[in-house]
C-alpha cells in the first residue's frame, strides 16, 4: 500500500486544493464575499488566493525536498518518478488556479 500512497500523494494534494478552491468559490459567491473588497482585491479572491498559494508553496517545498534529501525511495517508488509526479502536480495546481485572475468571480 505504501507504494500506492507514494504514487498518489502529489495528486491527492492537487485534488484537495482543487476541491477547496471549488468549495470556497461556491461558498464565497453565496455569502457575497466577492462584493466586499480588501484593498485592491475582493474578500473572495483573498480567501481563494491563500489556498492556492498555500498549495503551491506546499508542493514546491516537497519538490525541493525530493531534490535535496537522501536518495531513499519511499514505498519502493524510484525518486525520479516521485519528483516528476510532484512537479507535474505543482504545475497542475498552478494551471488549475489561474482562473483566480479572472476579473469577476460569480457570474
Amino acid at each position: 500500500m505504501s507504494a500506492v500512497f507514494a504514487l498518489s500523494a502529489a495528486w491527492l494534494v492537487w485534488a484537495a486544493a482543487f476541491a477547496a478552491l471549488y468549495a470556497l468559490h461556491g461558498l464565497g459567491c453565496a455569502i457575497g464575499a466577492d462584493e466586499r473588497s480588501v484593498g485592491p482585491l475582493t474578500q473572495l479572491q483573498v480567501m481563494m488566493g491563500v489556498v492556492w498559494i498555500a498549495a503551491l508553496a506546499g508542493s514546491a517545498g516537497i519538490v525541493l525536498a525530493l531534490w535535496r534529501g537522501a536518495e531513499a525511495a519511499p514505498g519502493g517508488v524510484p525518486r525520479r518518478l516521485l519528483r516528476a509526479s510532484w512537479m507535474a502536480a505543482l504545475l497542475a495546481i498552478f494551471i488549475t488556479g489561474l482562473p483566480l485572475t479572472f476579473p469577476s468571480a460569480c457570474v
Binding site: 482543487f18 507535474a88 497542475a92 482562473p99 483566480l100 479572472f102 469577476s104 468571480a105
Partner: peptide, 18 residues
Amino acid sequence: IPHMALAFFSAASTLVAI
C-alpha cells in the same frame, strides 16, 4: 455555473491530456 468555476474544470480537463 459561474465562469470561474467552469474555468477550473476546463483547466483540469485539458491537463488530463498529459
